[in-house]
Computed example of a mutant assay.
Amino acid sequence: MKKITLATEKLYFGFPIFILGYKDDKWGYNFTTCSSSYTLGDKLNIGLSNQGNAMKQIAKSNCFTLNIPTKEQMKQIIIGGFNSGADKFNFPESFHFELSEIMDAPIISECCLTIECQVDQMIETENHVHIFASIKRRLVEESLIHEHHLDCSQLNPILYMGDSHERKYRYLSPLEKPTT
């Protein structure tokens, strides 16, 4: 297979879309659409632009929620991704939320999975901030639980792909169980 150099400043090869919920000094609570994250045990790491409202607000409150939407929430995902600094919960057809019982951050009602996080450290680079957080609680829609475990065949997050030329959303096909 021949490989060539791709001249691009970005390359997303399939990352789950998530919605960050956070306390907002101006609007009370707010959210933004993101795609850069990973977890290891009880730790979660996310990357954000260091110019956005979300980063500034999370730096003040030191907590946030990570919420996993599904393709049924594409309108809300677009609202979150293209309206920085706006009062996104008050847009028509926006997400609904309730406050976390353990921290001052919103839990997005329509999302099938929520991870509540406390910021441990923020490292700012030239254009981005890397947020290292401790997971305090995981909330999962009941239909995604089977015998006290996550039923991965029922979870279908939206994947974000593309480069600086074009970005796309993709969906998983139904999960097939491995044969033994």
Rank of each mutant, 00 (worst) to 15 (best):
A86F: 06
I17M: 05
F82A: 10
A133G: 06
G81E: 02
Q118Y: 08
H128A: 05
R170D: 00
S37G: 01
N127V: 06
M1I: 13
D163Q: 06
Q76G: 11
T39F: 09
N156L: 05
R167K: 06
K60A: 10
T32L: 04
K23Y: 05
K56L: 01
F82R: 14
F31K: 02
E124G: 07
Q118E: 15
A54C: 14
H148F: 09
V140T: 15
N67H: 03
E116Q: 15
S153H: 11
N90P: 05
I17A: 01
D87R: 03
E176A: 14
L44I: 09
T70K: 00
W27V: 03
G14T: 00
D120T: 13
A54G: 10
N90G: 04
T65G: 03
P178C: 10
S84G: 14
D151E: 09
K23A: 06
I131F: 01
H165V: 08
W27N: 12
F15R: 04
L113T: 09
L175E: 09
Y169L: 12
R137L: 10
T70C: 03
L175D: 05
I102D: 05
E116L: 14
T180C: 10
I145A: 13
E142F: 04
K2F: 09
L40Y: 13
L40W: 09
K60D: 07
N83S: 12
N30H: 07
T32W: 00
D151S: 08
P69Y: 05
P157G: 09
E126L: 11
H146A: 12
E141C: 05
F132N: 08
A133S: 15
K56F: 01
H146T: 12
H146N: 12
E93A: 12
G80V: 03
G81L: 03
Y29N: 03
E93H: 13
E126A: 12
F89L: 08
T65P: 00
G81K: 02
I131C: 00
K43Y: 14
K56M: 02
K3S: 09
I123R: 08
M1W: 08
A86Q: 10
D25S: 06
I135Q: 07
M161Q: 05
N83K: 08
D42I: 00
N83W: 02
T33Q: 04
L172P: 07
L20T: 02
P157S: 07
Q118M: 09
M74S: 12
P178A: 10
A133T: 05
L139T: 09
S36H: 06
K177A: 14
K60Q: 14
I4M: 12
H149Q: 14
I19A: 04
R138G: 07
M1V: 13
V129D: 03
P16S: 15
L144I: 07
T114W: 09
I158G: 00
L155A: 13
E110A: 11
C152A: 11
N62S: 12
V140K: 01
T125V: 08
P92E: 12
G21Y: 00
G41C: 05
L150V: 14
S36C: 13
E166R: 14
L155T: 02
E101Q: 06
E142H: 12
S173C: 08
G47F: 04
S134T: 15
N62Y: 11
A7R: 09
E9Y: 09
